[in-house]
């Protein structure tokens, strides 16, 4: 009986993820199936195991706050030219702006520029245009500047689970201090 139930659950998870336009969080899947989050995770790893064993070209991955189907990287070089999708190229400046936002979000332009030491308006505009950065509001005070955060699309494009998947300033500092110490020795 339990096996039967698990089978149906697997089908349900597949159907839900495939039909959804956005990554589906394990919490939402759990709501639908009326089970705990841990059980959802178990079902998903079970599915992925089945896909692997039967040599499928896709897997369920947890990216940008939820599960979505992704093709496997080994097929990339074959399907990419076939699909002819353009690749997003980001300049060094744009990547740096993303890095500052990643470390300081939510953040205003002047705060970003303070860290970088250079004007960042154009990179910011481009990133908003590409949908990698969101404007989430305005800060109260002089000039009421915009407040920027990273978008779900950013996490998706960079293969990150979410904001928690990014390092903090303190973590980077720790790594640097260690490397610096090693260099001195």
């Amino acid at each position: 009986m339990d096996i039967q139930k698990t089978l149906n659950m697997k089908g349900l998870v597949e159907a839900l993820v495939i039909a959804s336009r956005e990554p589906v969080s394990p919490e939402r899947i759990g709501e639908l199936l009326d089970v705990e989050k841990q059980e959802v995770e178990d079902i998903i790893s079970g599915l992925n195991k089945e896909y692997e064993e039967s040599g499928r070209g896709f897997r369920l991955r947890f990216i940008a706050g939820g599960y979505q189907y992704y093709t496997l990287p080994e097929f990339h070089e074959y399907i990419k030219p076939f699909l002819g999708e353009p690749k997003t190229r980001l300049s060094a400046s744009a990547l740096e702006v993303l890095a500052v936002i990643a470390l300081k979000q939510p953040v205003t332009r002047s705060e970003i520029e303070r860290v970088r030491g250079v004007n960042s308006l154009h990179s910011l505009h481009r990133l908003v245009g590409l949908g990698l950065v969101n404007i989430v509001g305005r800060k109260k005070g002089t000039g009421s500047p915009f407040i920027y955060t990273l978008s779900d699309k950013f996490y998706q494009r960079f293969g990150l689970k979410g904001a928690d998947d990014l390092p903090t300033m303190e973590e980077l500092e720790e790594i640097f201090r260690q490397e610096y110490g090693d260099m001195e020795d």
Partner: peptide, 22 residues
């Protein structure tokens, strides 16, 4: 730190580009 994270992000973007979402 920002420069290093930016370099790190570039690698992640490159890597992730090999996975295509449904």
């Amino acid at each position: 730190y920002v420069k290093e994270l930016a370099a790190d992000l570039m690698g992640k973007l490159e890597e992730e580009g090999h996975y295509l979402p449904a």
